[in-house]
Amino acid sequence: MADADGSPPKTATHNSPRTWLLTAALSPLAVRLIRRLLSHGDYVAACLPPHEIEHRQRGAEFRELINECRSARRDREGWKDRIRGIRCDGRMSSCGAAIAEAVQLFGRLDILLCCRSEAVVATVEELSTTPLTQNLVRDQFESIFFTQVNFIKAALPILRSQHTGHIITLTSIGGHIGIPGMSMYTAATWALEGFCDSLAYEIAPFNIKVTIVQPDKEIQSLTNRLTFAPQMPAYADVFNNAPSIRDMLVNVLNADPETALPESFDFEATPSTPDSMSLEPDVVRGEVLHRYPKLPPGAAEKLVMETVHALTAIGGHENPPSRHIVGSEGALAVKEKLKTVTEEMEDFVDASLAVDIFDGEMTDEAGGSGDREEESGIGLPSPNV
């Protein structure tokens, strides 16, 4: 229950109204999560990245939500007083201002949900062809890693002074499994998860919890901005054993005329020099393309609701998990990866032990005699060598 003045209570338990701050609130997942939180009686500070606000398609569902909050519907009563949209570009000063505004308005901050995500789709070599594609590497880390770290750093003084709080980072199973064609997305995800793993130990004495939530990679990639670097012909058909992530995403985009990629997406290429005999031509034409996938009616709902349920169940829990994989398919994929790693480690240990035994047998055969070592050339080198 809220206090008499309408503000959230000074302490929040798992089942009482909590104050959330979402670092990016325009995705289909974020909009559906906000609806769930408001219906529960929670308070929401919704951060709006400026470059997404200006995108007509991207902000449509959020604007619809705000209209619902302002409507006279009885099942939406009080919603407009429990949500605040805050323009925030992810820089440290902007994040600090957003945190301060949320605390000033709602009195406290219980849950910081780091949910901003964008994916750069390209192989490592495709990100090295031009200065523009090289900058995509920095852009990828900026969107997934640095902006979320800025939010966390800005929130820590508030959470520490409260001696309670919960930081949830929404990533993907890309935090466990490498994805060919999305190397920088995977790298930035691993960086953020490693940061959170270390952070959890540092802030545990202040009763601040940290949870990493990992849905399938499709959930994040199909509900956020995709950036495509020009494709090198050498990589066009190299993944013959399975469909490439690039092809799958392109197929989704091409299913809707508004998001379809141009026919010139198959970029022209020539050797790097006229006299070059290289069989691996460099891309010299083609533009970087940005798209927000537009899913068929009802598809977004099915895609994200399991993750929405997991976030609402975990958020503010008195004893939340440090890591949660959403969905059985993702859990099985990670389990298989960890099983493979374990088997490789065991094989390496066995091979290493065999080498150690072989070295020991060599020493035994040498008889341990200094004279024998000198004769055979085995032993410590001369100080003069």
Rank of each mutant, 00 (worst) to 15 (best):
A229P: 02
A229D: 00
A229Q: 01
P230N: 04
P230V: 01
P230I: 00
P230W: 04
Q231F: 04
M232L: 15
P233L: 13
P233V: 02
A234G: 03
A234Q: 09
A234N: 14
Y235L: 06
Y235A: 06
Y235D: 05
A236S: 15
A236L: 13
D237R: 15
V238M: 09
V238H: 10
F239L: 15
F239K: 08
F239Q: 08
N240I: 13
N240L: 12
N240T: 12
N240M: 10
N241T: 08
A242P: 04
A242C: 10
P243D: 01
S244P: 06
S244T: 03
I245Q: 11
I245L: 11
R246P: 06
R246Q: 14
D247W: 11
M248L: 06
M248G: 05
M248Q: 14
L249N: 05
L249A: 02
V250D: 03
V250L: 13
V250W: 07
V250G: 04
N251R: 10
N251D: 15
N251I: 11
V252N: 12
V252C: 15
V252T: 10
V252I: 14
V252R: 13
L253A: 06
N254M: 11
N254D: 14
N254Q: 08
N254T: 05
N254P: 09
A255W: 08
A255K: 09
D256W: 00
P257T: 07
P257A: 14
P257W: 06
E258M: 13
T259L: 12
T259Q: 06
T259S: 08
T259F: 05
T259R: 05
A260D: 00
A260Y: 08
A260V: 01
L261D: 01
L261M: 00
L261F: 01
L261C: 03
P262V: 04
P262N: 01
P262C: 03
P262M: 01
P262K: 02
E263H: 02
E263V: 03
E263W: 12
S264V: 00
S264I: 06
S264G: 08
F265E: 01
